[in-house]
């Protein structure tokens, strides 16, 4: 839904402790930006959550229901003009019950745009 339309993945890298960083680029021409807000494009907080989920699904290779967001803090607005290129950092753990524990953030350079802690279930 959002992937390849609202944003696209331009690369990914995994470090030695298993944390994956996805490089993504926003599509400034996506219709969402014309409604949020007219003449003042800002990525909706829910789309930031959606980008994290989409990258997690891409990494895991299956769909997720993000049914439990323990905490999600939005610290800095994301605009497609000022911040079209973002890093999505995923620290995931697949648990015995099949759920995925997810700690994620969206950053670029020194800026942390948002942080999310939650748990998702596998969606067949």
């Amino acid at each position: 839904m959002l992937k390849d339309e609202f944003f696209k993945i331009t690369g990914s890298a995994k470090n030695e402790s298993g944390v994956v960083t996805y490089s993504v680029t926003l599509n400034p021409n996506h219709p969402i930006f014309s409604g949020h807000f007219p003449g003042n494009p800002i990525s909706p907080g829910v789309c930031n959550i959606g980008m994290i989920k989409a990258c997690a699904e891409h990494e895991l290779g299956y769909g997720l229901l993000l049914g439990n967001i323990k905490q999600c803090k939005f610290k800095h607005l994301i605009t497609p003009t000022e911040h079209p290129d973002l890093d999505i950092v995923l620290d995931m753990e697949e648990m015995e019950n099949g759920n995925v524990k997810l700690n994620a953030k969206i950053t670029k350079g020194d800026i942390v745009f948002m942080e999310l802690k939650g748990e998702a279930s596998c969606e067949s």
Binding site: L65, G67, N68, I69, K70, Q71, C72, K73, F74, G118
Partner: peptide, 10 residues
Amino acid sequence: YIGEIKKCQI
């Protein structure tokens, strides 16, 4: 804008 979401269960 949304500042924070907590204990969100769907």
